[in-house]
Write a protein that binds this DNA or RNA. Structure first.
Lengths: 340, 340
DNA sequence: CTGAAAGCGCTTACAG
DNA sequence: CTGAAAGCGCTTACAG
């Protein structure tokens, strides 16, 4: 026997009051006798009352959409976004595309239902299946740290990748290194990877150190890719004395390769990473790395979406937060050259 | 000039059609001439139409609430929960209490508004300010990996902490270690810490190895606490040959202490962690650890809440997923004792 | 394919 | 403090 739908009328009848009175209790209207209120509250609970509809305004939700939920820095983003959303009384809905269209359809449905206040496409590659349908949404959408060329009309928030990579390379050059290798995150596409490679090159050029293409390795943003690339570099006939890795994860792969090859960090080999994940602090020795203000990027993304949702104008459609070199214990002057 | 509220009537008038027709377009009813539909869609967009209310059913949201968003394993939880929620067409709202009551109030408001399908209290300590108000909610609430004694009437999902700690200790004993130290996560309260300590003791007892209280150190679940405790153990007049750390983070602290003291892992000192965070794989040497099925715990938590929301009954109010020892490269037989 | 009419669940003045 | 009445925004048959 599937019970009748429980509406305000059900409760009103059970309580022997009118529908408006029940409505007042639900809405926290003070003008209800305490005894009445208590009785109605008990009945609402007992009948398991659930409103049929919800005011769209109180349903404020911002969706953050990742390709996958799989990397540590996402938690930093989320912490920043959550803090801002909580202050604004808006919920943060986390979802993943997972190669499918389910996430997209879900977002679309919710947006049409007035449920989404806005959306943040994070770490989105250019071919995100979301792009073609964005225009249908009547809610603000921005990109956060877009991996590839994002739809140009979307506001975006990123980090100063070029500047950070340059600072990292300059740090190594200042220590006296002349054979500085780089391991990138991906050969082609990714914007951040390109910018970091260019920053590395700029620093070399400024220092008058000729670029050696054999010291540039292209991997993925993965631990294993770091191991592979670092082994190749260590086995190089004229090996580098320092490696700038395009991410902390790759840098940790370099650590492992060095351990397996009996190479000591930083005595034999200096290593710099990129991101400043918590894991960078936990490495032995602690990793010198370029800090991306991931939490702050999340906060800014959240604020930006809320600003747009309030139909206020943005200071700029493209915001880039600065990066900062954090010197820890994985970098040192190069070893004295062995006698030939 | 604050524009009039945009309602279906606004759009209907602008399009020269009736309100029901606009409603049909919004609801994806196929019985609308294409030309009409396109015209109405354009007008909806142009006027920035947003529904005033939302069907509560389509607003399905499950809230996961953490004390703070700050540890890597939360992302594993979230990945599992998100996958299940997406399949169910329910949104996952992530929030943090941050010592305040804002998160609680927010949840309450949404629950009353019919917006929360359920809630997952994750890693909650016993004194969560949420507990006193849980009864007011007409939605299912469960705890995930409760840190301390959670309100007993709430269903809970956890991991087999005792069993995992026992397996870790047995592994070290089987390698030949007799001086096996333990670094716990917290002196008192936390349930998981207590269970892990008891598992360690059980294994020692079974092997007939007497417990040495000076080999048990109480810290926090922090990297720094691991360093401090490990240094004390290494400096012990009769130091341990193996350390079982109550979390991977503590274990990484042990790595750093060992590096600073010139102690080699695993040649001089074996280390086992607990959690199997991604960072355990990235450690050098890769960390032997007890794997908690964090993602699977998230999935189960999500399924459990949805089951309860569907008013179906639970197989059991308390579910514990098994843990598994993952042997990597940080454990080996103890060094041969030095000649006195 | 579309609209006039009825209806739904809830809220908002207004009156007492 | 409470209810009868009107109203709101939207949806649901029903008729053509």
């Amino acid at each position: 026997m599937p019970a009748e739908r429980v509406t305000l009328a059900t409760i009103a009848e059970a309580a022997g009051v009118s529908v408006p009175t029940v409505s007042r209790v639900l809405n926290g209207d003070g003008n209800v006798a305490k005894a009445t209120r208590l009785r109605i509250e008990a009945l609402l609970d007992e009948h398991g009352y659930r409103p049929r509809t919800v005011r769209a305004s109180s349903a404020g939700m911002v969706h953050v959409i990742y390709p996958r939920i799989d990397t540590a820095w996402q938690l930093e983003h989320i912490r920043g976004m959550e803090a801002v959303m909580q202050e604004a009384g808006v919920g943060l809905v986390v979802s993943a595309l997972n190669h499918g269209t389910a996430g997209r359809n879900d977002l679309l449905r919710r947006a049409q239902a007035g449920q989404a206040t806005g959306a943040i496409l994070a770490a989105a590659s250019g071919d995100t299946p979301l792009a073609p349908v964005l225009d249908q949404l009547n809610v603000p959408v921005i990109t956060l740290d877009p991996g590839a060329k994002a739809p140009a009309r979307l506001p975006s928030i990123g980090a100063a990748n070029w500047q950070g990579a340059r600072a990292a390379t300059e740090h190594l050059l200042a220590l006296g290194h002349r054979r500085v290798a780089m391991i990138t995150g991906s050969k082609g596409g990714l914007l951040c990877s390109r910018a970091r490679l260019d920053g590395y090159r700029a620093a070399l050029e400024d220092a008058g150190v000729p670029e050696d293409p054999s010291l540039i390795r292209h991997g993925e943003f993965e631990f294993e890719a770091g191991i592979t690339a670092a082994k190749q570099l260590i086995d190089h006939p004229n090996p580098p004395t320092a490696i700038f890795a395009c991410s902390d994860l790759i840098a940790l792969g370099v650590y492992e390769a060095a351990r397996q090859r009996g190479v000591s960090i930083p005595a034999d080999l200096s290593v710099v990473g990129f991101d400043d994940l918590p894991a960078a602090r936990w490495a032995s020795p602690a990793l010198t790395t370029v800090r991306q203000p991931l939490e702050e990027m999340g906060r800014l993304a959240a604020r930006t979406v809320l600003t747009m949702a309030g139909r206020r104008s943005l200071p700029s459609p493209r915001m880039e937060l600065s990066t900062r070199l954090i010197v820890r214990s994985s970098t040192a002057p190069p070893p004295r050259p062995r006698r030939g």
